[in-house]
Design a protein around this nucleic acid. Structure first.
Lengths: 112, 112
DNA sequence: GTGACATATGTAGATGTTTATATATTTGAC
DNA sequence: GTCAAATATATAAACATCTACATATGTCAC
């Protein structure tokens, strides 16, 4: 099933950018306007729009136009699961580092 | 916590390659030697080694040297969760496409 | 030591991504 | 229609990644 592998890699590529992740994290609460996102994330409008375009192209995010404003939301909430698991992995790594440090201080004292 | 965002994006970048995903999928069953991976994935040895190096550098995978062989394994099983969620999202998209198709065939018949 | 094997690294051209800046498009107010 | 605001797109330079191929390193058997 190479199709799935390519899909996954495309998908992860879409997430592989700090600003895009920040956008998705911002959209956890639901829909947000471009302006709100722009102020919240403190980035140039065109910078944000470029990254929104990436997320839109990959079908991760969808924009709803209302007047001259556009409100974005995440298409599939499973995306948040992905971010949560990434955070979990990050935390696991922190624990590794902590364990390593405590082993240096008092060897053989607190194994996992 | 911008640190976390950068970590996540680095992490997703590490996953954003079909071969690297194939490697990780291969390692679901546990440890595998480079040679086994090489035959299984049908890629050049150096190509595989390059991508293993990426996964190693980002601490996603770890190599255990035994004689002249090296056996790789995934450092944190949560990585597999990540791949599973990606698959889930892929499947959700397939359903979207199916719905779209059925709506074209018989409009207003099977809304979500 | 030599030779063969397993794995890793270096290099370079092609390709893709990021970033800032400029410009275009769309919409609403007038 | 003009003007301003909101959003999107184009462009180009800097930078990173990918790929194939060549070469290096490490280990074992002899």
């Amino acid at each position: 099933m190479a199709e799935l592998g390519r899909f996954k890699s495309e998908f992860f590529k879409a997430l592989a950018h700090p600003l895009r992740i920040a956008v998705l994290d911002g959209l956890r609460q639901g829909e947000l306007g471009v302006n709100e996102l722009c102020n919240f994330l403190k980035v140039e409008q065109s910078t944000l729009s470029q990254q929104l375009s990436v997320l839109r192209t990959r079908n991760i995010v969808v924009g709803r136009k209302e007047g001259s404003n556009v409100y974005y939301s995440v298409r599939d909430p499973a995306v948040f699961k992905l971010l949560d698991v990434a955070k979990e992995i990050f935390n696991n790594h922190l624990i590794d580092v902590r364990d390593l440090l405590s082993q240096i201080e008092s060897p053989m004292a607190g194994g996992r």
